[in-house]
Simulated scan of single mutants.
Amino acid sequence: MTTYNFSSGPAVLPRDVLLQVQQELTDWHGSGMSVMEMSHRGPEFTQIITEAEADLRAVLAIPANYKVLFLQGGAHFQFGMIPLNLTQPGDTVDYVNTGSWSKTAIKEAQRYANVNIVASSEDRNFSYVPDEAGWQRSANAKYLHYCSNETIGGVEFPFIPQSDVPLICDMSSNILSQPLDVSRYGLIYAGAQKNIGPSGMTIAIIREDLIGHARAEVPTMLNYKTHADASSLYNTPPSFAIYVAGLVFKWLQKNGGLDAMARHNATKAALVYDAIDGSGGFYRAPVSGACRSRMNVPFWLKDAALDAEFLQGAEAAGLVQLKGHRSVGGMRASIYNAMPLEGVQALVAYMADFARRHG
């Protein structure tokens, strides 16, 4: 029986990539070393990180005036690094609040700057993206921050916000899922463990003019300039995660790039949402309309007393990690790039069968 992993992160990786990792695990390209053993200063790893950056630049069409940084600490680290690098004490920054990760970023930014909430969807339990026409922007904001896809709530921005100040985006759970105009942004950051590779790494794509303005007291390791000047090799980097990410970037190119991923993800998401909407109320999705995430699909059963049985039956059918986040309950199917269409088809078939037996 095939197992399909719907975890929100660390998430499913392309099978072809995992098989290549397995093949190269003890001896990378005849070097006699595993990637986990080799020096990050040696020629072997230099090749790995150089190719990974070049392939990511090709996949995302990253302009030449942007630095690509392979960092540690997860997106949580970026919540503090951003205001520490882009503001001075007393500065104002604008944030859009559309869910759990937006709230966490806001809370951290409030330690270092005056945070103006330009818009919030908390009034309807974070089930939508506020209309941009109503956003209350600051006249003197240093940047505008938003989270393009809320992993927990299943809300995804259907547009890129307009901004006269640097636009900053937490793109952890939908980066590489569709074509993207990087030039619209000042900084994009993403934890690797959803659409990029293993956990333990964060990628930051930052416009060069935003580097070099950190506060004087910022620790060396929290300064973007430190990592930009050292080509992400100031300290020992997350080398194995960089290696796997590089294989994922090659896999993306081999499989048609981001245009193909966009079609693949739209097809999968439509299958799940059609199953929910066509269930006669047996299943319910909290997000409606154009703001529904293509990556994370939360849903509830009409009777929460059936949750445990639904999960038990799903696991028996090879459909794992479907339990919703503890803060919201219910179910959540995360269907990132590497989730094959067959996995979503198996989920939809199980959902229909369960509803027939319990409806």
Rank of each mutant, 00 (worst) to 15 (best):
V129K: 02
D277V: 07
A304V: 15
M261H: 10
M201L: 15
C169G: 09
I117A: 00
A58L: 06
N140C: 07
L233H: 13
Y283T: 07
I211G: 00
S163N: 12
Y4T: 03
G343Q: 01
Q72R: 15
Q110S: 10
I62N: 03
C291I: 09
K225V: 03
D131E: 14
H40T: 11
G32S: 03
I203K: 01
D55A: 12
M38Y: 05
Q312R: 15
A275P: 00
A192W: 04
V348G: 08
S327C: 04
N5F: 09
Y4A: 05
E217I: 14
A285V: 08
N149V: 09
G90N: 03
L167P: 00
L187P: 05
Q23G: 07
L18Y: 06
Q321K: 11
Y273Q: 10
D259T: 15
F249R: 07
A214L: 07
P83Y: 05
A314C: 10
P10S: 13
M201Y: 01
A275D: 01
W28L: 14
L13P: 04
V155T: 12
L84M: 14
P63I: 05
V68K: 01
T267K: 12
G246Y: 11
A64E: 15
R124S: 14
T202K: 06
P286H: 07
F45N: 00
S100A: 11
Y146R: 01
A54M: 05
Q23L: 15
Q136I: 10
F126V: 09
V328K: 04
S8N: 14
W251E: 08
A64H: 07
A64I: 06
T50K: 09
I205R: 01
T236Q: 11
A308E: 15
V68N: 01
Y66F: 00
D16F: 06
N265G: 08
L306R: 07
S127W: 06
S183V: 14
R111G: 03
V328E: 09
Q162V: 15
D209G: 09
